[in-house]
Design a protein around this nucleic acid. Sequence first.
DNA 1: ATTACATTTCGTCGATTGACGAAATAAAGG
DNA 2: CCTTTATTTCGTCAATCGACGAAATGTAAT
Lengths: 115, 115
Amino acid sequence: MDRQIVKVFRALADPNRLRIVKMLEQRELCVCEVREVLALSNSTVSKHLSILHDAGLVTQTKEARWVNYSLNVKSESQFVRAIISALKSSLLDDETVLKDTKSVDRVDRNKICRV
Amino acid sequence: MDRQIVKVFRALADPNRLRIVKMLEQRELCVCEVREVLALSNSTVSKHLSILHDAGLVTQTKEARWVNYSLNVKSESQFVRAIISALKSSLLDDETVLKDTKSVDRVDRNKICRV
DNA sequence: ATTACATTTCGTCGATTGACGAAATAAAGG
DNA sequence: CCTTTATTTCGTCAATCGACGAAATGTAAT
């Protein structure tokens, strides 16, 4: 059984990781920005992003002190692209997602990192 | 957070339930036919199908002694349809799925139900 | 070189999940 | 009506998972 596909579904089977993916539809984020919006600990957020990365749903790049995470919209995997696309048109009026969207607009790593 | 979407991902986060969905792409099946192919207990299979049904991925109809399960390709939910479609074009050369496909062709409730 | 900062990893805990066998349920078949 | 059959539900167990704080790591900034 193809472990990658199971990993994708597992990655998205958690509400907080779904929220992260919806946030990353908006823009690239670092761990502490995600932490700020989700109100979880740094370690928990880091673990969530690691799971999403391992599933191939997000990419990570280093920029100064920050590791930036982006949605992997150009994945080699057609399956991953199809899932990301399906999610893009979903949860559009979900209350939690809408609230997160506003928070993503406001959050600024230069004001909040460290803790 | 929309519980239905989480349910869909959770439902598909288990390898055996993925196998069931791929089997149902072929044809409608009853519990004992799925049991035969997956080599799991009746109760486990029943539970798996219940989870898939609750997520909106499969439909169930009663026919004589049997409850038949089918893939919900005409779901009201565009999201569910997109996921089913994404899976349709995935796992096409997966060894386990290919083996299951052959077994589905052979399995016959009139010869195997009961335990 | 040292310090500061952002992230990752580790260990622990309580909750959840997939497996099973037994019991219960639904209803077809005789 | 009674028996048989197929399925569902229940209870238990071991494994996994998401949360946390602390420790470790990587490296930019000074």
